[in-house]
Design a protein around this nucleic acid. Structure first.
Lengths: 166, 166
DNA sequence: CAGCAATTGAGACTCAGTCTCAACTAAGCC
DNA sequence: GGCTTAGTTGAGACTGAGTCTCAATTGCTG
């Protein structure tokens, strides 16, 4: 069966465990999220559903995202903007983000050395970590080649004043 | 001279360079930020000023914070909540954060091994970093001693549903 | 001290996200 | 299949952080 259908199954299982129901709206949202989006915003999802003439209210979108986060199938992340982004989780791949402040492109990476060192730091501080979040902001290779200097006044203004609005 | 006055001087210098003015409102805000706050929210600052009967409008608070960020004296950070926090920068001390999801306490740290590794990763990905942001969420020592388990259902609910609201 | 550009405050506005409540529906049970 | 009921939905009001506007005010420089 296609991967998307498997995800719907996973979600149904989670819902059942919680005594909740799998509705048409929830199915449609999971299908949309896992078939096309990777990083997305709640409003973007709402808009895509409207585009496809699938009528789902804003409240339901947010409620479903909340459930998906609880189930561990979707993760809420900050990508340098002033509101949340979501990303779907396939498998258990934890990763961090390189975010290009020019084109907005997001590169993922995972690095064991970083992970290990973070745990060492927590140990030293007697802190029990449950989750972490690392964003590195900067300029990606292709933007650099286009010759936009990362510290030109305009850039700094864009980053600091109106950070990465669409 | 007291440290706060030195900061006001720094700010004035920055303003002059930009052809901007040091006003009473700006002075009052810098004094407040650098004498008492460390991590703070914009609204909290607004409230403190009201408390002290220093009349400064919301718009001015935000405008001044913007200038302080541009000048490098204040940094905008995400601390796991859905709005910005600010922290003042004394010297050039870059640091990251351990955030206790129970008591909200923030522990700072700086680690050269992490910094170096991050640069290596960027090099590998041909990414030019300008800034980064690492938050490790978890449970601090004193909360752990109080016996709150980090993964109890209530905790997870609190973190995932309404992340760290006041 | 005059003039003007920068600054301010009040409040309207935006935008993401939440809440409410009456109408609706999935799913277990007969 | 129909009943029951607890969970779900949509519309739209609401919230709260942050931004914008514009007329009135105020630092600074000459």
């Amino acid at each position: 069966m296609p991967a998307v259908e498997r995800e719907i199954g996973r979600f149904q299982q989670f819902l059942q465990q919680q005594g909740l129901k799998l509705t048409g709206e929830r199915t449609a949202l999971v299908r949309e999220i896992f078939s096309t989006h990777y990083h997305f915003e709640a409003d973007e999802l709402l808009f895509k559903m409207k585009e496809k003439s699938v009528k789902i209210s804003r409240a339901t979108v947010y409620r479903t995202l909340e459930l998906l986060v609880k189930s561990g199938m979707v993760r809420r992340v900050h990508l340098g903007e002033d509101h949340y982004h979501y990303e779907h989780v396939t498998g258990n791949s934890h990763h961090d983000h390189l975010i290009c402040t020019i084109c907005g492109n997001v590169i993922e990476f995972h690095d064991e050395v970083l992970e290990k060192r973070q745990h060492e730091i927590c140990e030293k501080k007697k802190f029990t970590p449950t989750f972490h979040n690392l964003q590195i902001l900067g300029v990606c290779d292709s933007c650099k080649k286009k010759g936009v200097t990362p510290n030109s006044p305009d850039r700094v203004k864009m980053i600091q004043q109106t950070p990465l609005r669409k």
